[in-house]
Design a protein around this nucleic acid. Structure first.
Length: 240
DNA sequence: GCATTAAGTCTTG
DNA sequence: CAAGACTTAATGC
């Protein structure tokens, strides 16, 4: 949790870092300055735990660059990946959902740059910074919506449909255009995908191999490119 | 239709 | 070379 993360407040933080990020975009320069002066900036390698489920929510976070993986551990010790967060979003905002501990664990899915503030400042942010709370509700709502969709998928769809839809969501939210399609923009293993879809890495491996033969995806170790999104959409809908 | 087991290869540090 | 990522086939519910 305190891995190699260079706590130095990355020189002096430039105001342009925040001016175009939704929760702060409506603020005056002096307010941005104020916010940055209270922030701690941290640059993390991939795989660093930012906070752990159940920990007291002492800080809240803004992801400036990279991706965050949100996960929970079952009593049996299995990981379940519940969400990936792209840059420009707040996370670890326990206060927004009425908690004083973190409801899940957050780990960097790539190299990342993260700002954070003490949770004691939360009420101040909500009260004094225009647009901050509405943006918070929006993000919380979006994530709830996605989780809801996934619950329905888990209950009603077969594995192939679930994996197809999960992969589509991944490239939609975190995809990067490459030569022959859209690539998931961070390291992702078959194990990871299985933890997102409640299946095994073996099934994922078989599915990806089959899809590759059909020309839907191209994957190498830790990389997945979706080359025919429409084809995947069909698979995700249809009962094959 | 899928998990499990098991037995392997290939890649990376 | 060891550890981790990945593949494939066999078996059983």
């Amino acid at each position: 949790m305190e891995n190699q993360s260079e706590h130095k407040s990355l020189a002096r933080l430039d105001e342009s870092l925040l001016t175009h990020i939704p929760p702060f975009s409506r603020l005056k320069d002096f307010q941005i300055r104020e916010i940055l002066d209270h922030a701690i900036a941290r640059r993390c390698a991939e795989g660093v735990t930012v906070f752990t489920e159940g920990d007291p929510a002492e800080r809240f976070y803004m992801l400036l660059d990279g991706y965050i993986r949100v996960l929970r551990i079952t009593p049996a010790g299995e990981q379940v990946i519940s969400l990936h967060i792209p840059s420009g979003q707040l996370f670890g905002i326990a206060k927004a959902i009425g908690r004083d501990t973190y409801p899940a664990t957050a780990i960097t899915a790539s190299e990342a740059i993260i700002l954070s503030w003490p949770t004691t400042m939360w009420d101040h942010f909500v009260a004094d910074y225009e647009g901050f709370s509405s943006e918070t509700y929006k993000v919380v709502g979006q994530r709830m919506g996605e989780i809801n969709m996934r619950v329905v998928e888990m209950a009603t769809q077969q594995v192939e449909q679930r994996v197809a839809n999960t992969l589509l969501r991944l490239v939609e939210q975190t995809g990067r255009k490459v030569k022959d399609g859209i690539e998931v923009d961070f390291s992702i293993t078959r194990q990871d995908l299985s933890e997102m879809t409640a299946t095994t890495l073996h099934t994922i491996s078989r599915l990806l191999s089959a899809w590759e033969k059909k020309g839907l995806v191209k994957s190498r170790r830790k990389h997945i490119v979706v080359s025919d999104a429409d084809g995947l959409v069909v698979l995700g809908q249809h009962h094959a």
